[in-house]
Design a protein around this nucleic acid. Structure first.
Lengths: 187, 187
DNA sequence: TTCTATTATGTGAGTACTTACTTATTTTAT
DNA sequence: ATAAAATAAGTAAGTACTCACATAATAGAA
């Protein structure tokens, strides 16, 4: 097996390498991983197909690079919530995060891909949401909930349900649903 | 285009035809629609590949047949809830439905396929859950909720979130989560 | 019943095309 | 001058689907 060059590739990237990643993210999120061929990615990125394999070893390596890059984004996105100590503020910030996501096209594409990949590969990326879950559990504990860990999990379940409806249902009113959540949790 | 024979095929089915449907459901739910080739389905079902196309015209026709058969199942599953008039009993029956689903392997496979297909094809099958949503809205109205339609949608969102965690997370405790829901809705 | 004509069920070997991936070669940057 | 970036043209295996043919079931006439 050839040695992978991802570790440094994350930091030093050529223009074409970035184009490949961007095209792959867009196409994987739109059509799905399996349904998107490497030749389609190459055409969309305006590069030769061989270059994909030079930079990312194989199709899976391309996906891993996208997922890894997105993980950093997720950490950044959650960091504001995770380090908040005031419990009500944790919830407020979590809901605000959902609201703000709508405007960020790149982030939306990434999260949509996350869900698609989860269903396509059957591996739930628990590690990604774990710090968020802990922060929520801590907040619910401070607020006096009977079973804070379960309440935190329940909140993540709600978020996943909302994401599903948001991404797959054209008519879904995200702001209205967040308003309902705010009322329910009194924040 | 050749005339389709699905309409009557739903009622009169040969043994091999049923085997194809069963294998396809199993493989589509496990590996995904795109990732499952017709040759794999044929091998798994122990029939020639050509027979699939004789009976179901094409791969999409095979999927449609599965989805259509499952729709009948869904109607049957919901009927008990839809015709219930006592609001608390509607919620109780909805939660009971979730609990009972665990034991029904065939139904579980079908619902897992539903979610996979939703993410793969980006079409949310709203029509399937619509009667359930109406029944829930009616129940929430009787219970005096401020916005019963939105509460009903919220409940479906929770169910979808739960389904996602149940199907994709190996460690998910469904019964505990249903218990939490029962407590929250006081049923 | 038995023979026969007809239809429905089923197969196996093919089709053209796409797939992920490789390799030899050229272009570009240092 | 050398190494990295990029390409074009491959490859073998897989894809959905077709088609000529074989087998089984069924119905009507004798």
């Amino acid at each position: 097996m050839a040695k992978s060059q991802q570790p440094k590739a994350i930091f030093i990237m050529t223009a074409k390498q970035e184009k490949i990643l961007k095209s792959a993210l867009e196409l994987f999120a739109k059509e799905g991983y399996k349904a998107t061929s490497t030749s389609k990615v190459a055409k969309h990125a305006g590069v030769s197909e061989g270059l994909i394999f030079r930079h990312f070893t194989n199709k899976e390596g391309l996906l891993d690079a996208i997922l890894k890059e997105g993980e950093e984004q997720a950490k950044l996105l959650f960091s504001d919530i995770v380090f908040e100590t005031e419990p009500k503020e944790v919830l407020r910030k979590a809901f605000a995060m959902l609201e703000n996501l709508q405007a960020n096209k790149a982030a939306l594409e990434f999260w949509k891909l996350q869900y698609k990949i989860k269903w396509e590969t059957e591996k739930y990326g628990e590690h990604k949401t774990e710090p968020l879950e802990l922060a929520l559990a801590s907040a619910f504990k401070k607020l006096g909930f009977a079973n804070p860990e379960q309440e935190a999990l329940f909140m993540l379940i709600i978020v996943d349900g909302i994401a599903m409806h948001y991404f797959l249902k054209q008519t879904f009113d995200l702001d209205a649903m967040i308003a309902l959540l705010k009322a329910k949790y009194e924040v």
